[in-house]
Design a binder for these strands. Structure first.
Length: 630
DNA sequence: CTAGGGTTAG
């Protein structure tokens, strides 16, 4: 038996070295089912017509365009200049059309400067111009200016219409101010002269969904049914997507049947939401079923749908298959976009294949996909996970040369990389740098830094940072407390760790598996093995099942406290639950055996059939159960 | 000429 254990130990060690990433680890559980899904899926698409029938609508829309289509801001500025020099001046409508197009390109500040030029030439605003302006300020997170534009309506004797109000409601939502959005909505209803339309309702429904308030969204849906403005496709799609994001796929599917029974046909948005969530839950059969269903209804997957599939395949570690999907997209004349390629790059990064990721990154512009902040963050994350900090930092510098603004995620990723290689100073430098550049640290940024400080035994600095974080109105969550509890345990301040742990519920926080495991570890370090075991039972009772990592921790705790009898019992419990010993636990067990420290009374237990049979599982030690993940 | 829904990174 000893031989077997040693063999499996090496297997466990090498497997945990290979799996350096915590993401993508779920590939272990259902690879084969997913493969079946993918194979079916390929066969399925090859049997479909390669091009969906294009709607004739777009063809009809073309001739009425009396203005060259603007594809970039420069063209807009040039055209605008020429128009401003014409005498007589073109009408406000002509100018507004350009503003509308630039706004569609999401160049909101460009719209504002164009509007200023209009002002200089004394071109009067109309309702359209002002509404576009409001929308631009909304997207620039400047609601204050949006509201002052509203004031202009009255000055000019114009009356805001339902477009204006819907835009303002959306603006509040972009700032996460759902209450104000709802207030404005109610004002519309009560004032009586401008009733909300389907879009206005849809916007507010989205607001409730954003706040995770699905029941309020559904309530509004029911209210629409009673009134004159019946819910349409978009409102259903919004709620279906929100239900999906909350993993309530069954509720989402019920809503799908409901809309169909009302004669509202689901479109590619509806199916993409559903397929996305079903893929995330690993329900490949259902994903295939939905793909079948949509095509049978003449709804064809588009670049969004395919990107979801590419992303899922990549996260499952099946990058080759993802590449196949990309090729199929091109064959079917659906051009992969930046998001598609970003997902593919992330897939390579997750497997540590940085040169392949880099190749995609390099080829993107020639395929018509501009790299963006996501592309850089993905690559940077790839290098950070491989501890290649120089390469990661070079990319950060390249970003600013290309005029891309690194965001909170980019900086947090880099800070985490530096923390993990023990360069706390560099992490802290980035933390200040990001704030100097106007990027606000969020909870996850603080989590990265706190974790780095705690793991590097700088507890007092960590506590200082924690206080700073509390001072800002950041929502301190269980992840943060878990890091602090671990920090206290590392510093062997077990009493303080216990206090913090048992005070969690009074802060309205629920410990998760990680929190429990870290506390159990702390208690074991402090020699309180019986209390640790109590916690193991308690977590199970509270519906938080211990995982393989938890068992390994507590077993090691018992062995280290010379309680090998109880340790052996726990090993059996662990094996019965389908978990297995990891490398360091196995080492301790071997040590016990070598030193003949195992009570002969235990031998019958150790030779139990199920225990022996399960030993080869050692090599299946899953690093997803490992602490290095928040 | 103006407004709402689905894809990617820590």
């Amino acid at each position: 038996m000893l031989k077997m254990m040693i063999r499996t130990t090496t297997a466990a060690t090498s497997s945990s070295c290979y799996c350096w990433s915590s993401r993508g680890m779920n590939c272990l559980h259902s690879n084969s089912t997913f493969l079946v899904f993918v194979n079916n899926y390929f066969a399925f698409f090859h049997s479909q017509p390669s091009k969906p029938i294009k709607s004739t609508r777009t063809q009809l829309e073309q001739p009425k365009r009396d203005l060259p289509k603007i594809t970039n801001v420069e063209d807009a500025f040039n055209l605008f200049d020429r128009m401003l020099q014409m005498r007589p001046l073109p009408s406000v409508v002509r100018f507004t059309k350009i503003l509308g197009q630039v706004a569609k390109l999401k160049h909101y500040s460009a719209v504002i400067s164009l509007d200023n030029q209009m002002g200089v030439s004394r071109i009067r605003h109309d309702i359209y111009t002002l509404t576009i302006l409001i929308n631009c300020y909304c997207h620039l997170n400047q609601m204050g200016f949006s509201l002052s534009v509203l004031g202009k309506f009255f000055k000019l004797g114009l009356e805001p219409n339902v477009f204006t109000f819907a835009t303002l409601i959306n603006g509040f939502l972009l700032e996460n101010r759902v209450v104000q959005a709802a207030e404005l909505f109610n004002k519309m209803i009560n004032a009586g002269n401008c009733q909300p339309d389907a879009v206005t309702y849809g916007t507010l429904v989205k607001g409730f969904c954003m706040k995770g308030n699905n029941s309020a969204a559904i309530h509004l849906l029911r209210k629409m049914e009673e009134g004159a403005c019946k819910p349409g496709l978009v409102v259903y799609n919004t709620i279906i997507d929100s239900l999906c994001k909350d993993k309530l796929v069954d509720d989402a599917l019920n809503l799908l049947s409901e809309m169909m029974s009302k004669g509202i046909a689901p479109n590619v948005f509806t199916f993409t939401s559903l397929i996305h969530e079903v893929c995330k839950l690993g329900k490949w059969k259902e994903a295939k079923g939905l793909l079948n269903e949509m095509v049978s209804k003449n709804v064809f997957p588009d670049v969004y749908t395919f990107s979801v599939l590419v992303d899922t395949l990549c996260k499952e570690g099946m990058v080759g298959e993802a590449e196949g999907v990309v090729e199929m997209m091109i064959e079917r004349d659906i051009q992969p976009g930046t998001v598609t390629y970003n997902s593919l790059m992330d897939g390579y990064c997750l497997r540590g294949e940085m040169s392949k990721a880099r190749k995609v990154f390099k080829l993107m512009p020639s395929k018509g996909s501009m790299v963006n902040v996501f592309s850089y963050s993905i690559l940077i994350n790839g290098y950070c996970k491989r501890k290649m900090m120089d390469e990661a930092m070079m990319l950060l510098q390249e970003m600013s040369r290309k005029g891309l603004v690194p965001d909170t995620v980019t900086y947090s990723t880099l800070a985490d990389g530096f923390c993990k290689v023990g360069k706390l100073g560099d992490a802290q430098k980035l933390f200040s740098e990001m704030q100097a550049c106007g990027q606000l640290p969020d909870v996850q940024t603080y989590a990265v830094l706190l974790d780095g400080l705690c793991k590097n035994r700088q507890l007092s600095t960590a506590i200082q940072l924690f206080k700073e974080m509390e001072g800002k109105k950041l929502d301190v969550n269980i992840v943060i407390y878990t890091i602090l509890i671990e920090g206290l345990c590392i510093a062997e301040k077990i009493e303080s760790a216990r206090e913090l742990f048992f005070g969690l519920s009074s802060r309205g926080l629920q410990p998760n598996v990680r929190t429990y495991t870290i506390m159990i570890n702390g208690l074991c370090i402090g020699g309180r093995t019986s209390e640790a075991e109590k916690l193991l039972i308690e977590m199970e009772e509270k519906g938080c099942s211990p995982n393989g990592w938890t068992y390994n921790i507590i077993i090691r705790g018992f062995i280290n406290n010379n309680e090998s009898v109880r340790a052996m019992e726990l090993i059996q419990q662990m094996v019965e639950k389908g978990f297995s010993a990891d490398a360091s636990t196995t080492e301790l067990i071997i040590d016990l055996l070598c030193k003949d420290k195992v009570d002969p009374a235990l031998l019958p237990l150790m030779q139990k059939e199920n225990y022996e049979l399960n030993l080869p599982q050692l090599k299946l030690n899953r690093s997803s159960d490992h602490p290095n993940k928040h």
